[in-house]
């Protein structure tokens, strides 16, 4: 599939990633899974932003999903979750554009203290739906060449992004942001060896 599921903007503070705004498109998941999927995508986005150095880009593969992350030198970060068919260059170009737009609309002094409800930036759902079709990015592709020379680092699993000694399973169990329901989904999915596909 060529699909985008989630688009989030974070501020990468010294101790943790702070979610400033998020948008999801989870219609392709079955009804009772959507809540858990959304929590997981939020959880994965935050985890990856926290483990991405400032001024760098990563694309992290996890099962059928691809998490594209870009953290700028000023610690503003964007995460785009799609599937692995979605063109990587387009994803990163879109992230650049979203963060530029965000910077233009939200003053930088709000970043370190802002929350999802306090930040006035409502464009994310529109971006997410428009760029479901990567052809929409045709105008952007001209920009692709200008895409800054930051190399995109490819990682094959979330585990590869984690710091030494960290384990995804432990993090899921410990996380306070995940409900019991979501943890049940995680375990079941893992058991059937199709983590996060939830089918």
């Amino acid at each position: 599939m060529v699909k985008l599921y989630a688009l989030c903007v974070f501020f990468k503070g010294p101790s943790e990633g702070r979610l400033l705004k998020a948008a999801y498109d989870l219609q392709s998941f079955s009804f009772f899974q959507r809540g858990a999927v959304q929590e997981f995508m939020g959880f994965a986005s935050k985890t990856i932003v926290e483990r991405t150095q400032a001024a760098s880009r990563q694309s992290v593969k996890q099962d059928a999903y691809m998490c594209h992350v870009y953290v700028r030198a000023d610690n503003l970060g964007g995460v785009l979750i799609g599937d692995h068919e979605y063109p990587q260059r387009v994803a990163h170009t879109l992230l650049t554009k979203v963060l530029d737009d965000f910077t233009a609309k939200v003053p930088a002094d709000q970043w370190s203290t802002g929350t999802e409800s306090s930040i006035a930036f409502t464009q994310l759902p529109a971006y997410l739906s428009k760029y479901q079709d990567p052809r929409e990015a045709d105008a952007l592709t001209k920009m692709q060449n200008d895409l800054d020379e930051t190399k995109i680092i490819l990682k094959n699993t979330i585990e590869a992004v984690l710091e030494r000694g960290e384990k995804l399973d432990d993090m899921v169990i410990k996380s306070e942001n995940l409900s019991i329901q979501s943890k049940a989904f995680y375990k079941t999915a893992k058991k059937t060896n199709s983590c996060c596909s939830f089918s």
């Binding site: 079955s30 009772f32 329901q181 989904f185």
Partner: peptide, 23 residues
């Protein structure tokens, strides 16, 4: 409009049949 099995870790003392918005 849809039926699915919802993964749950253990038995809870409530009805396991859940009906929300025609799902």
């Amino acid at each position: 409009t849809s039926f699915e099995i919802i993964p749950t870790l253990s038995y809870q003392n409530k009805s396991p049949v859940i009906h929300v918005e025609h799902n």
